[in-house]
């Protein structure tokens, strides 16, 4: 039943395609936050989502398109049961070892002062992260955030 979080029925959907310029990181998280706001998330939930999105988009820019500029595609789906599903995809270099990349503090770019905490932040601030990657083809990160029920009292 757990995997249902990843294929719950979609109610509303938003797509965004941005070139992998670091200036777009702020745009990406602001856009997701604005779209998710229609579900009245708590301030903490919204902060979690923004942070997780920022990590995933930064990964595309810093690692996926290391020596080039390509497109970062973002799809946000609002599903039944107050489930937010966010897919962030690039067509960059891909990850050789996803398991290793997800380890806390692992980074391939220590000189650039990357903390190696990107995936750890995504995992901690959301309710599920899936990574599919193919060398030379790109990486797609899918994140699920289940929002708490609205308190209507």
């Amino acid at each position: 039943m757990k995997s249902n979080k990843f294929n719950a029925k979609v109610v509303n959907k938003m797509q965004l395609k941005l070139p992998s310029l670091s200036v777009n990181e702020g745009m990406a998280r602001a856009a997701v936050a604005a779209f998710v706001s229609q579900l009245d998330p708590t301030a903490t939930e919204l902060a979690d989502i923004k942070c997780a999105v920022s990590e995933a988009v930064t990964n595309c820019i810093v690692h996926g398109y290391r020596d080039s500029v390509g497109y970062v595609r973002m799809t946000v789906k609002l599903c039944e049961g107050r489930i937010v599903r966010i897919e962030i995809a690039d067509k960059g270099c891909g990850i050789a070892d996803v398991k290793q990349a997800r380890q806390p503090l692992f980074t391939t770019d220590a000189a650039g002062e990357r903390s190696g905490m990107g995936f750890t932040v995504m995992e901690s601030f959301t309710d599920g992260v899936r990574v599919s990657s193919k060398l030379g083809k790109g990486t797609t990160v899918t994140m699920i955030k289940v929002l708490a029920d609205l308190d209507l009292t």
Partner: peptide, 13 residues
């Protein structure tokens, strides 16, 4: 009011 892991790298550096 917003910081991601890049900020961690900044502080650690």
């Amino acid at each position: 009011d917003f910081m991601d892991s890049s900020g961690l790298g900044l502080i650690m550096g």
